[in-house]
């Protein structure tokens, strides 16, 4: 079966339908929701873990979701090099599942943030940024309470050395950090990738920036890469 893109829905996910609309209706790639109890992911060309509050984000964001039945096959999918994108809560689940290094901590303000931000693309060497260039600036919304990326110095140094920082918070001109790093992420990191580059976690929401009517469509520039992934799958 050619499943296109699978959007994995955990109990409490709430960005799943937005991701589905963005992929299926705005990009035009086949996509469907995947229940957290499903275990056969073999047919998908790519997987997206959407935003939300899986299991209420109780205990820690993403902490309980990582024990869902779908996570072991997700791990296998990632190990085979399959492209995986975790957005917001999906990013948190990927770190809790140790598919990505680090953790997402409370925003430094201790408040939930909802606003548009800019991110600078730091590498084109992931399937999700393949259509972009290093240095591209995207304008995307954020909406999170636990958005401050943290990893210890050694891990951050490794991420930098291996080119696995995918995006950083910046201003409209691409200047990284400062006020733009509103949540207090280490090294203004907004997204990171796995060693193979195929698993990417991103705190801002590309699936919400899909129409100028909504304030911007830069998210499509990133998500369009799914067309290539699904085409390559056959």
């Amino acid at each position: 079966m050619s499943g296109g893109v699978g959007v994995i829905t955990f109990p409490g996910s709430n960005g799943d339908v937005d991701a589905l609309h963005a992929l299926r209706d705005d990009i035009g790639v086949p996509a469907r929701l995947v229940d957290h109890r499903e275990t056969d992911l073999a047919g998908f060309g790519a997987l997206v873990l959407p935003g939300g509050f899986s299991y209420g984000d109780y205990l820690r964001s993403g902490a309980i979701a990582r024990f869902a039945p779908v996570v072991e096959p997700l791990r296998a999918f990632a190990a085979r090099g399959g492209p995986v994108l975790g957005i917001c809560n999906g990013f948190q689940v990927l770190t809790e599942a140790h598919l990505l290094p680090g953790a997402l901590l409370r925003n430094r303000t201790l408040r939930f943030h909802c606003h548009w931000t800019h991110v600078r693309v730091e590498t084109a060497a992931t399937p999700w940024t393949a259509d972009l260039d290093e240095g591209d600036v995207l304008r995307l919304p954020v909406a999170h309470g636990d958005g401050a990326y943290y990893a210890d110095d050694e891990t951050v140094a490794r991420l930098e050395a291996e080119g696995r920082v995918v995006a950083r918070y910046c201003d409209a001109e691409g200047r990284v950090g400062g006020e733009a790093n509103a949540n207090g992420s280490v090294a203004a990191i907004a997204g990171v990738a796995s060693p193979g580059g195929n698993v990417v976690g991103l705190m801002p929401h590309p699936e919400r920036a899909t129409d100028p009517l909504l304030g911007g469509d830069d998210g499509l520039r990133m998500l369009r890469a799914a067309l290539t992934m699904v085409a390559a799958q056959v």
């Binding site: 299991y55 209420g56 109780y58 205990l59 902490a63 309980i64 024990f67």
Partner: peptide
């Protein structure tokens, strides 16, 4: 205690 319940479920 929703958090306790969710952890119980987990």
């Amino acid at each position: 205690d929703p958090q306790g319940e969710a952890i119980h479920g987990g």
